[in-house]
Design a protein around this nucleic acid. Structure first.
Lengths: 112, 112
DNA sequence: CGGGCTATATCGTAACGCGATATAGCTGGG
DNA sequence: CCCAGCTATATCGCGTTACGATATAGCCCG
């Protein structure tokens, strides 16, 4: 009875990843852990890796491969200009939604 | 290139509808208009009606049918106790996510 | 009578999250 | 020396969802 948590995250995950990349590059596993320390936003590799691939395909991220001290080479992702403006759009929308939902929760919604 | 808006809404729509019912009953069409005056949260009938059916099936809402002055009978929905506590859970989670995302957007991510 | 508004419902499609699973390099213990 | 465990990436498949398109029906107005 907590499938709604999964649904609440949809799209929101994309936003999280872009937001986490706002201040510089990072590789998948790192993003995973960085985001996972946020309460209520725990993701898994199955979510992050396909997403990163998609965002790269959509030109919102660029990749740089560098060897890892342990394991396969790391793939460092960075926001493109388009990714940056995309993030800004999302942030704006996000603010609106936040405000709107808070309004719904607190009585308003019909008072003219 | 705005499919992310749709994704951002997933699950969030459920939250909106429950939140909109927080202060009393309403019928589908009414909910639709009430939520649609919130910027960035415009829904359609195709989204709301199946959702209301699902929430009712899951015992989060109850229905009361009453004749309409125009058109088919209205179906008034109301939160059950379970729906109420469900909404509280979601609101808590929502707060966490809000805080977490804001932290991600504003530099933080590791500073304790 | 016909167009427009209210009000509900369903089908089909596309997109996404995530559990399960595979793979590979490195390190430390028995 | 080998196996267990950690880092790091990737893919398949399932279930869930939002929404455009579409159908239906009662009411009002010209």
């Amino acid at each position: 009875m907590k499938t709604w948590v999964a649904q609440l995250r949809k799209g929101l995950v994309e936003f999280s990843v872009l937001a986490a990349l706002r201040h510089g590059e990072a590789y998948g596993y790192e993003l995973l852990q960085r985001i996972n320390r946020i309460e209520g936003l725990a993701l898994t590799e199955s979510t992050v890796y396909p997403l990163l691939a998609r965002l790269t395909r959509d030109k919102l991220l660029t990749v740089r491969v560098a060897p890892s001290p342990a394991g396969p080479p790391r793939r460092y992702y960075r926001l493109t200009d388009e990714g940056q403006s995309h993030l800004n759009d999302m942030a704006g929308h996000w603010k609106q939604v936040q405000t709107g939902l808070d309004a719904l929760l607190n009585g308003t919604g019909d008072r003219p």
